[in-house]
Write a protein that binds this DNA or RNA. Structure first.
Lengths: 236, 236
DNA sequence: AAAATACAACTTGTATACATAAATATTTCG
DNA sequence: CGAAATATTTATGTATACAAGTTGTATTTT
């Protein structure tokens, strides 16, 4: 299924993937066949095939006689995610260090430049997409049929988690992002040097950073307000 | 997509999965839409949707304008497989030991009984399917969205590798199978006791057994025949 | 005789019309 | 009024017809 990038089908697929990753379509949101069919000038038959394919890749969920919706994120998601991610990503980066080709290393450097550009001047969505692209390439480098399916699902929710727990005004968050960018550079170096052990360790470090950021978000420092300031509704 | 088990669509899906797992459809084999459409009294539209879904799960591969074929197994398959399998299966069994419900433990025991019955009197395909079912249940127990996709792909090729490297006449193979069955019993015990460490170790042991059996198959003892027995073509 | 090209048969992709199931609004009756 | 039953509407599932692309074969050309 290597779609021509210009076909309406490929356009739709790209659009939906981006929308899911950037949360512009929220988890659980319903997809209407008729509407999308109109918007992308595509009949329902190929549209539904795209749904099924994206469901297979983990972007959507299909329910019998009830259409498609964006994959849910529940409160067990984060736990499942951080259980699986270090292991899978560690394996991916070790294999990437062993198997990377010169061409893919170039791609990875390009993706990192795009990521840095997005850090400086892009939107949150731009940053999430660029980061996603960077990691996808490491997956290509690892080139293991059996690890990729889980890795790609992790990347989907990695992007969505990043979008969820990002607060642009927060200095700590900004600092974390530049650390993440430094990680990317170190990952490139380890892969280029075929340094399997370093690559594996960087995977762990990278996820620890993500987890720290989420902890900051979930358990913030309490607001410093005296009790008793809650507004009461005036009786009619 | 919880299909009614009686719907022609579900029947087709079941049939194709089984055929792929048991090698009754060989890796790389082409699937003809018209023929299958006839055989399962289903029009091409839903049939193609099933193709796409099975492609998402790793049973089939779709190629633009060239229909579907059964997923290939290449030279690198075995290597990729044994790289990923111990890690993923180890994680699955550890999580299964932590999360298994009583209902699923019952299911697992039932699957193991079916497997033993197949060992005694079933065909190679029966055995592969029963074994596949057993491991699928451990995946359900682990209940981690991110690990399951890779695990399920591993199970597909585990079944196919088992079918490929099985020789019914060989005593060593038969012995290995009864060891495998003993592993299953030990796995059930570890899960029931919530013994995470034991479960993880059993995963390793189980794959080592598989790998040994394949080595036996790939590098057999040479045939003991003298040189010089090659027949020459008589000149005309 | 070998290569190139044009044609024909077949396969896949898409659109549309129809069938069926779910959701919603309406009516009926307690 | 309110709850249940029923009609209406809307959305999903399937079949079929047609369009577009691919493959194999026959013919032509060198």
């Amino acid at each position: 299924m290597k779609d021509d990038a210009r076909s309406p089908k490929a356009t739709l697929k790209e659009h939906l993937k981006t929308a899911v990753l950037t949360l512009s379509m929220k988890p659980g949101a319903d997809l209407d066949e008729a509407t999308l069919s109109d918007e992308f000038s595509l009949s329902r038959t190929p549209l539904r095939e795209v749904f099924r394919q994206l469901a297979g890749e983990g972007y959507l969920e299909l329910r019998e006689n009830r259409g498609a919706r964006v994959s849910e994120m529940s409160y067990t998601t984060l736990r499942d995610f951080f259980l699986a991610a270090p292991m899978v990503y560690g394996a991916i980066l070790r294999l990437a260090a062993l198997n990377a080709t010169a061409a893919l290393i170039d791609d990875l450097k390009g993706a990192q430049q795009t990521f840095e550009a997005a850090l400086r001047s892009g939107s949150g969505a731009d940053r999430a997409l660029a980061n996603n692209r960077f990691h996808e390439i490491t997956g290509d480098m690892a080139d293991n049929t059996y690890l990729l399916p889980s890795f790609k699902r992790l990347l989907i929710d990695h992007a969505r988690i990043g979008m969820t727990f990002y607060r642009p005004k927060d200095q700590v968050v900004a600092d974390n992002l530049s650390v993440a960018s430094a990680h990317h550079d170190a990952i490139i170096a380890a892969i280029e040097a075929s340094d399997e052990a370093a690559a594996g360790q960087l995977a762990i470090d990278h996820w620890n950073l993500s987890r720290d950021q989420i902890e900051l978000f979930v358990t913030p420092a309490g607001l410093d307000l005296p009790l008793g300031t809650v507004a009461h509704k005036t009786p009619a």
